[in-house]
């Protein structure tokens, strides 16, 4: 069994932010994945989706679900992250005031993605974009 989904995410569109995560949550529920696993997966995915909306021009989210795992691949076209190690530090943030008004941008998202996933890989090219790869096992 392999289920694949793809979502387009527009930078700056806060009203639609979270739709990919919400759809993924519904799908995982239908598949009978445990609530605790679903919670971890969608929290990580939502944080990553918000990062595209908050920082990038646009991006795509690809979800692949197999019998025992979910792969979440997020690729954006945006400013990139110059220093990933620094960005992973709790409290470090480059978020705009608009993002903070929405209750985000406290510099906790990347850490929370790590906490909630079995594998997190971030690669980034300044001026081009960022790719986030996350895997969770059921």
């Amino acid at each position: 069994m392999v289920i694949e989904q793809q979502y387009f995410v527009k930078g700056g569109d806060f009203s639609r932010a979270g739709i990919a995560s919400s759809e993924t949550r519904k799908l995982l529920k239908q598949l009978g994945i445990s609530p605790e696993k679903i919670r971890n997966i969608v929290i990580a995915l939502y944080e990553a989706e918000m990062n595209i909306v908050a920082h990038a021009r646009e991006g795509t989210i690809r979800i692949s679900i197999t019998r025992d795992s979910i792969l979440m691949l997020l690729e954006d076209q945006g400013p990139g992250i110059p220093d990933i190690e620094q960005a992973m530090k709790e409290g470090f943030s480059t978020a705009s005031s608009k993002v903070r008004e929405m209750g985000f941008g406290a510099g906790m998202g990347l850490n929370n993605m790590k906490r909630n996933t079995d594998l997190l890989e971030i690669t980034s090219t300044v001026g081009t974009g960022t790719t986030v790869r996350m895997i969770n096992y059921f």
Binding site: F14, S21, S22, R39, I43, M50, G103, F104
Partner: peptide, 11 residues
């Protein structure tokens, strides 16, 4: 705002 509801949904 709408993200308050989204956040509640995810959490």
């Amino acid at each position: 705002n709408i993200q308050t509801i989204r956040t509640a949904e995810m959490a």
